[in-house]
Write a protein that binds this DNA or RNA. Structure first.
Lengths: 246, 246
DNA sequence: TCCTAGCCTTGACCCAGATCAAATCGGACC
DNA sequence: GGTCCGATTTGATCTGGGTCAAGGCTAGGA
């Protein structure tokens, strides 16, 4: 499978380096982007966007983690995307949000007002291209996830999620030992369940089982050590490199 | 939810009118597209693309139906997309296919060699924009499907699929009675199962159940009549209009 | 220090959908 | 018409994961 490179860009004074929308842009274009950008902070649990609401900005996550969810009338909810630093939020060309976006931790967003962003986009082909690439990556991620949701067992689902989180985390900070990974779970058991199409009880049981079997080690409830990524990816049912992203 | 308009365009001598990649293009641009396009026919069951293979064209489906699937080593497979006439296949900027694409019926594709298409794309912003829109629609479709896969019951899954097929079919041919729909199932029970993350037996049972309950009528095994789309969408667990596409 | 509120874990039991097995249907081909 | 084969239906049984219920762990507040 295809593991897209983490989307990061340097937009001047954002606290992290990332090259998302403005990779390859020249300085004029960057200046134009700078002119319409602003920052906004959301507290953990706060809603960034509510499905159906008017949405007059697009932007990318600078720090923190947000989730993209859909809900049925009876309350069943499914997470359809996990937004990590550098991920893009919002859809140019549409003025209402299609999903609920909720901050899981404190989230800082680098926002662009939608109209000026769209204007800029139609003037600078780079940006449209970049956005196309990012969208295609997201599409691949969504499709990979369809396989997880439709055909994997609970244990494989958990292993898949851990493997993705471990790899996304690893691409943020350089690792020495390529086989060992250490990271903090950014999600509650309930959020994991919503991502995996499971119940929180099943998530809890399977995490315990993986711990018992030595696939992972836990320190507290959130701090995870993966002694052997290969083993984890086997558990996930992934072949060679375990098509991951998101 | 958002029901994207069917992507169709008129590319000169294609047997159907569609406005996919070249909507809004002027005549010069159309001519440039014409210059690099060619047609190719695939028989039912024939593979159009094999995951991991080199892919040197992109294109859109002119007629027939193809499926986009992912497979695990042990044979479990999940359909991740259904390609109906006018849908776009292939990813500009990547030279290997990410999925298996298989013709379900005889399929005619309007292809563009990838390199010239990419060149053309970088010269004509319209096309990149159009592609971005189409990709965003597909992403919405994939995410909608994640909700189906992750949280719906077997009966709701079947109803969701039928509702999507009925609506996509309806947007191809004009309908008088907006409540009634008649169409042919383009998929075997097994393909439906692969789409829905079920087994073919369960698909068969639930289709029978929906027939018994008067939600649909069957003539033979493939010809479906939906007497009341509202009822069907209720069964699908969809609110108002039942987020559709694909 | 204790209390409280979220999380999280674990156990007991149940059921929707998987699995295994057997017909039946329908079209293509002789 | 008859045979064959793949697609479909239907039945019987099994089981992974859902549901319900009872504690446990930890951080923050008083």
């Amino acid at each position: 499978m295809n593991v897209p490179t983490i989307q990061t860009f340097d937009c001047g004074d954002c606290p992290i380096r990332h090259r998302a929308v403005c990779a390859r842009c020249d300085s004029d274009e960057l200046e134009a982007l700078d002119a319409i950008k602003y920052y906004r902070t959301y507290d953990a649990g706060q809603s960034i966007t509510w499905s159906g609401d008017r949405m007059d900005f697009v932007g990318s996550v600078v720090s923190g983690i947000a989730t993209l969810t859909q809900t049925m009338e009876d309350g069943r909810t499914q997470m359809v995307g996990l937004l990590l630093p550098s991920d893009f939020v919002g859809r140019p060309g549409r003025d209402t949000a299609a999903y609920n976006v909720v901050a899981t931790s404190t989230v800082v967003m680098c926002c662009f007002r939608r109209k000026p962003f769209e204007d800029l986009m139609s003037r600078t082909p780079h940006i449209a291209h970049r956005l196309l690439e990012m969208t295609l990556d997201e599409l691949d991620a969504a499709r990979e996830w369809m396989l997880v949701l439709g055909r994997k067992t609970a244990r494989e689902k958990i292993a898949s999620l851990l493997s993705i989180l471990a790899r996304r985390d690893a691409s943020l900070r350089p690792e020495k030992d390529s086989n060992r990974r250490v990271f903090d779970l950014p999600l509650t058991r309930e959020a994991m369940a919503d991502y995996l199409g499971l119940t929180l009880e099943t998530v809890s049981r399977q995490v315990s089982a993986l711990r018992k079997d030595g696939v992972i080690e836990l320190e507290g409830k959130r701090h995870v050590t993966v002694p052997d990524m290969g083993r984890l990816m086997e558990e996930a049912g992934d072949d060679s490199d375990g098509g991951g992203f998101l």
